[in-house]
Design a protein around this nucleic acid. Structure first.
Lengths: 142, 142
DNA sequence: CTGCTAACTTAGACATAGTTCTAATTTAAG
DNA sequence: CTTAAATTAGAACTATGTCTAAGTTAGCAG
């Protein structure tokens, strides 16, 4: 997607959901859309400051809450660390690199055994596979 | 498994791994073995105090670290909260109840698609499925 | 275009949960 | 009995997230 297209997509998303457009919010959503690395608040704040020097952490938190509220971004956590944010709204799984900690999306696939097998008296609303190993980058670097 | 059998199993585990036997450690491991609810430190500490009133939190941390070190217990986290501990060393998946937060073990099953499909340039060391929904108890209570 | 105002942003203090540390005391096990 | 190792209470630390009060701005009404 070109930069222009992304910008239009963001504008539309803001308009559609009634989220007020500010430079900070635009930047955060743009960053999440174009670099799907599941950034933490800390990372987003650092990135934001490279452009809009003097952004407040609170703004990043507020922005992310607004985006989550609006359904434009999903929040999740991994291994007890800080919350991570994902603008990929498609169903997907996650891969976590043991060496560098990178989190990558993995295309969705069903886990068919689930239905018959394990759902005795519970009802399953959703599930997700978390894969762990060594990412492509860490492989070539060693 | 009877209480006696469990006790013997614990004794043997301590002896085999060279973990010194203390009442606190015995209690913690016993609790993890007999009640596989993936307790947190806080929960274990509360349980311990019901018996050995005046146990220190630090002891629970020390104990768990020793048990993890010895390979008798596994540590994991879920949803960015406190670490949870599991004496079930078999491979298994987890189910998390949306309503009450309970964490239950789910018997292991393979996810066959993984091999061919997604492991392009990364290597996958392990994976786990996390299921979410409503547990049996919460179902009957509502 | 201009001015208005509710909403947003800012800096930094504050809050909190989880965990680790410390120094004195007690204990397991040879 | 001895002593290295474990336990204790509570202080201290760390990371993450929330709050506050003052200043700024988006977006609309006129």
């Amino acid at each position: 997607m070109s930069k222009l297209e992304t910008a239009q997509k963001i504008e539309q998303a803001f308009e559609r959901t009634g989220v007020r457009r500010t430079p900070q919010r635009f930047f955060v959503l743009e960053r999440l859309l174009t670099k799907p690395d599941h950034a933490t608040v800390e990372e987003l704040w650092a990135a934001l400051n490279r452009r809009h020097a003097r952004a407040s952490r609170a703004t990043v938190y507020n922005t992310l809450h607004a985006l989550v509220q609006a359904g434009l971004v999903r929040e999740f956590t991994l291994d007890g660390k800080a919350a991570r944010y994902d603008a990929n709204l498609e169903r997907h799984h996650h891969f976590v690199c043991d060496s560098c900690g990178a989190v990558e999306d993995v295309n969705w696939f069903d886990v068919p055994q689930l239905e018959g097998n394990e759902s005795e008296k519970r009802s399953i609303r959703s599930y997700e596979v978390t894969l762990r190993g060594k990412c492509a980058k860490c492989h070539s670097n060693n």
